[in-house]
């Protein structure tokens, strides 16, 4: 096990399953103790914590709906009380609705924006306070839908665009505090959540439009997040790193040719 994050404390929101779980395990494998946050799936979060402890570092599970400011505050109060500091904050927890733009309503907007964008603002404010005097790393998880128009993805795409803008502002404002802030945007990642989306779309053929020849895995995203949390990434500030196997810079035609 590499120990580049030994002695660090990381909070990964939504880390019971999928990308969040992979990030939590990767940071743990680099030596960081992990706070596993979850909202709806306790069993999964406890499994993640158990797997983290098996690596040889500490894990603590905290339940909180980060879309609810009071609940997010309670989570950070607990972190402040139990640890007194934080070195890494990974804003991964996300939710949203898959509707066409014309079907979106206020309820969809508020739910999605509160969890995907507002929570990043409020949690980063609290995280930055816990990083004062020691510096830290903040990484948000975005998606290609922030700049590509994907079918029925408008609501989440808009929230991710807000998250990316916020990443840039935080990166500048927190730079004097020695806090690095960046975002990782992935294309369709093989997770339970995305299987549902693909089924809803009648079976999108992601492979056909991914030059790298396979779907992005949660571990692909976790590897980049871990790099951004390392000192080697110190001079990367407010950037979006795209993890998509080349999908966003190709066309269906060139992808077909590559496959031939």
């Amino acid at each position: 096990m590499s120990q580049s994050l030994q002695g660090k404390l990381a909070l990964v929101t939504g880390s019971g399953r999928g990308i969040g779980r992979a990030i939590a395990l990767k940071l743990a494998s680099e030596g960081a103790d992990i706070i596993v946050n979850f909202f709806r799936h306790r069993e999964a979060a406890e499994k993640t914590a158990k797997d983290i402890e098996a690596i040889g570092v500490k894990a603590e599970v905290i339940r909180a709906n980060v879309g609810d400011p009071a609940k997010a505050d309670e989570m950070f109060d607990a972190i402040a009380h139990n640890f007194g500091h934080l070195d890494i904050f990974i804003n991964n927890a996300a939710s949203g609705v898959w509707h066409s733009v014309t079907e979106l309503d206020v309820k969809d907007w508020e739910w999605t924006m509160n969890i995907n964008a507002r929570a990043f603002l409020l949690c980063s404010q609290r995280a930055a306070k816990l990083m004062e005097g020691r510096g830290g790393k903040i990484v948000s998880i975005s998606s290609l839908g922030s700049f590509l128009a994907l079918p029925t993805y408008a609501m989440i795409g808009v929230s991710k665009a807000a998250l990316e803008a916020l990443t840039r502002y935080l990166a500048i404002e927190l730079a004097p505090k020695n806090i690095c802030v960046n975002t990782v945007a992935a294309s369709t990642v093989e997770t339970e959540a995305i299987k549902f989306y693909i089924e809803e779309q009648g079976g999108l053929n992601i492979l056909q439009i991914t030059p790298a020849g396979r779907m992005v895995t949660p571990e692909d995203v976790a590897n980049v997040v871990a790099f951004l949390c390392s000192e080697e990434a110190f001079m990367i500030r407010g950037q979006k790193i795209i993890v998509d196997g080349g999908m966003s810079i190709t066309t269906p035609r060139s992808a077909e040719k590559e496959q031939d």
Binding site: R40, N65, D68, S95, V97, K107, D108, W111
Partner: peptide, 9 residues
């Protein structure tokens, strides 16, 4: 689905 989650919460 959103109503259901909100009701549960």
């Amino acid at each position: 689905s959103l109503d259901i989650v909100q009701a549960l919460v």
